[in-house]
Design a binder for these strands. Structure first.
Lengths: 108, 108
DNA sequence: TAGATAAATAGCGAATAAGCTATATGTCAA
DNA sequence: TTGACATATAGCTTATTCGCTATTTATCTA
């Protein structure tokens, strides 16, 4: 996947809806267990279900997903009609490590 | 200072110039030792010097500083003609802790 | 082959962001 | 009190963001 674009990552997290999407995707079982086409934990959560959860239109959620994908924070796999979204925990950990070290934050 | 506004903080870090300002303010001695009106390490760095360093106009840097202040990431103290900016390390640490825990990032 | 469903894309409007110049305000020194 | 300097504010332009609806593309099913 190569070097992540920090500008993309920084912008991806500049929106509370997208942060919340990432938070929910950490525990899909709690909020998306009603998804029947595929196991939300194993495969991911489809765009439509995310749109419904946030009360935004499907194209709007599709755009959020695109930005999160570009940042590398989520992985989307197409399966039949659906695009299943899941978190890339390693990318998120990498980003926070970068942020902390580039700001030289010492205390934790 | 009360509860930090996470929206303000998230937006404050959505810009590479502001991230770089925070990075430089961690080590003012290296880049701002030429400041004569006050010790950059003890007191802070004035707006004009920051504007020069980044090659932006004084009002533009003033605006960046305002956003960083609102986020709580820098403290600005007015002294005579100057406004000296310094990092609030505790606020930055608090923000990163919030980010990590609200995204539930485990690996470090 | 139609029709239904999921997602992506195009295109629009309102709001926000980031730069600038010009001007106002505050502070100090002559 | 005037002039100089640092900062803040006002107002403008351009670009981006974020929402929407309408449409297109892809996939499945009757």
């Amino acid at each position: 996947m190569g070097m992540p674009n920090r500008e993309d990552q920084v912008k991806a997290l500049a929106n509370e809806t997208r942060i919340e999407v990432l938070r929910l995707l950490d525990d899909p079982a709690t909020h998306f267990s009603k998804q029947e086409s595929a196991d939300p934990v194993e495969i991911g959560v489809c765009v439509q279900l995310l749109a419904e959860h946030f009360g935004v239109s499907q194209p709007t959620m599709s755009r959020h997903i695109e930005l999160l994908k570009r940042a590398g924070f989520i992985v989307a796999k197409r399966q039949q009609k659906w695009t299943y979204c899941s978190r890339d925990d390693a990318a998120l950990a990498d980003y926070t490590r970068w942020l902390i070290s580039s700001l030289n934050i010492k205390t934790f």
